[in-house]
Computed example of a mutant assay.
Amino acid sequence: MLRTGFLLIAAMMGGLGVCAQSQNAPASELKGMPPRVGPSEYQAHAQAGAVTIAADFVGHSVPTPDATYTTEDYVVVEAGLFGSPEGRATLSKGDFSLRINGKKIASPSQPYELVFHSLKDPEWEPPSKDSKAGKTSLGTGGGADQGATPAPVHMPIELRRAMEQRVQKASMLEGDRSLPQAGLLFFEYRGKPQSIRSLELIYSGSAGNATLALQP
């Protein structure tokens, strides 16, 4: 009886260990945004050694497999890298830069964490302020606070965390990776997309060099 109980506990502990290992998978096993069927599925593509770089410019949109968000401070490029069936490449966000309107100095790719402060979900609507305004008027005897600036309404923390996690997973992975790979790249730009006349995505990494003319 004691032996049976011991074996049962050991089996339960082993199962918990497997769960913990799957939840703490090394970074090398992480998967980012699913790549498209091939380079021709993107706006532009160019060769860098044995690797084909492909990309789409999506403006201030932040597309993820689960939802599309927006950012006013950055523009986004969805990039894909393709090679032979057994091909690999060492990826780094620093390998990419974006030349906007022919500027001499191209904008370097930025870490996805910097995008979080300006990240918005266009599908999320803040709760109506009418009920709060009514309660304030009653509580203060009428129009005493009518000219006051309303307090900002923030997205619930659990929704913001889910949004940020989706963007993190969709961003370009780094390190030694098997091909194909795909992900989002972020470049600082606060202007309107309509003011962009020309775009060049510049890749300079372990595979070689390539320049892609993108559609604004």
Rank of each mutant, 00 (worst) to 15 (best):
A44F: 06
S195Y: 04
T90E: 14
D66P: 01
S178Y: 05
Q194N: 07
C19G: 03
T64I: 04
S40W: 03
S97E: 05
P39R: 08
G5A: 11
E200N: 10
M172G: 03
K31N: 12
I100L: 04
S131E: 15
G142F: 04
L173H: 03
D121A: 00
P34S: 10
S40Y: 04
G191F: 07
P108N: 09
I157W: 05
Y74P: 04
E72Q: 07
L185R: 05
S178L: 11
H154D: 14
L16A: 12
G32C: 00
R190Q: 14
L138M: 15
A133T: 12
K120M: 13
M1T: 14
Q23D: 14
P127R: 09
T4A: 09
T64Y: 01
T68R: 08
K31D: 06
E200C: 00
G102N: 08
Q23Y: 06
F187A: 04
L7M: 12
T149Q: 02
E41S: 15
H60A: 08
P193A: 01
G134D: 12
Q110G: 00
L81Y: 12
S28E: 14
R161K: 15
L179Y: 07
K93I: 15
A11T: 03
T70I: 06
L159K: 15
A207L: 03
V167Q: 13
R197I: 00
G191E: 12
G83Q: 04
L114F: 11
S109A: 15
A182L: 11
G191Y: 13
D130R: 11
I100S: 01
S178T: 15
S195R: 11
Y189D: 05
K31P: 00
D56C: 02
G143W: 07
I202N: 06
Q23S: 07
S128Y: 02
A11M: 02
M172S: 01
E164D: 13
S28N: 04
L81T: 06
M12R: 03
A162T: 14
H60I: 09
P193S: 02
R161M: 07
V76R: 02
L114C: 00
R99M: 06
G139I: 04
V77L: 01
